[in-house]
């Protein structure tokens, strides 16, 4: 079996100097925690995971994109404060803002040693212009279509992918339909229906 993830993370950092590896916990009963790796070293880490004789993760089973919107988490804490000269317990709300990002999740298994899954994740800087991560296709060919799918539906650009085109949506389609804030146009036809009411409604919905 695979060593606990924090030991594995340390081993990766020893093997790939400068790599930033972080354990992402998973609270569900599935108990499948994952490793967050930085895109600059992702390719070297992937190569290490595949070639290291005790790991041999030769099979990239699943590649999935995830869209995390900007979010605000509110945590309530009780603080003792002096109000009008009397000490009172007052509830204070602390807001933590987390900027949104896109995430690509890889589920790795080993066909040779029959263990897994090892889950690694790459994150983009934000959801707009910093949308690049490293493509792992040169390590696992099985990522080819799946990374194209993530590019198509989420708009993550994979550096080093030799053939990054849309795969499910048609050529010339503008948006990325799996994003959480995607608004579907009312009408996909090139010539909108001539009825004013429908046309007006359609125009409201087109992405600006």
């Amino acid at each position: 079996m695979i060593a606990p993830l924090d030991t594995l993370a340390r081993r990766i950092q020893e093997a790939v100097p400068g790599a930033r590896v972080e354990v992402v916990p998973n609270d569900s009963p599935a108990a499948q925690p994952s490793l967050l790796v930085d895109s600059a070293h992702a390719l070297a880490i992937a190569r290490f995971l595949r070639d290291e004789p005790s790991l041999r993760f030769d099979y990239a089973s699943n590649v999935a994109g995830v869209d995390w919107l900007d979010s605000v988490t509110k945590t309530k804490t009780k603080v003792k404060k002096i109000v009008d000269g009397v000490e009172k317990e007052v509830e204070e709300t602390v807001e933590t803002k987390r900027p949104g990002y896109l995430e690509v999740v890889y589920h790795l298994y080993s066909m040779n040693l029959k263990h897994g899954p090892l889950i690694i994740r790459q994150r983009t800087g934000n959801r707009a212009e910093l949308n690049r991560v490293a493509s792992l296709i040169s390590v696992w060919r099985g990522c080819e279509f799946q990374e194209r799918e993530v590019y198509d539906l989420y708009g993550v650009v994979f550096d080093g992918h030799p053939d990054l085109r849309r795969i499910l949506m048609w050529e010339g389609f503008k948006d990325h339909p799996m994003r959480k804030d995607y608004v579907q146009p009312d009408d996909f036809e090139y010539e909108p229906t001539p009825h004013d009411e429908v046309l007006g409604r359609a125009k409201e919905h087109y992405p600006k």
């Binding site: 998973n26 609270d27 569900s28 009963p29 599935a30 499948q32 089973s61 699943n62």
Partner: peptide, 10 residues
């Protein structure tokens, strides 16, 4: 409503 978390089943 499952608890927050993730799972992969195959």
């Amino acid at each position: 409503r499952p608890k927050a978390g993730e799972a992969y089943g195959r």
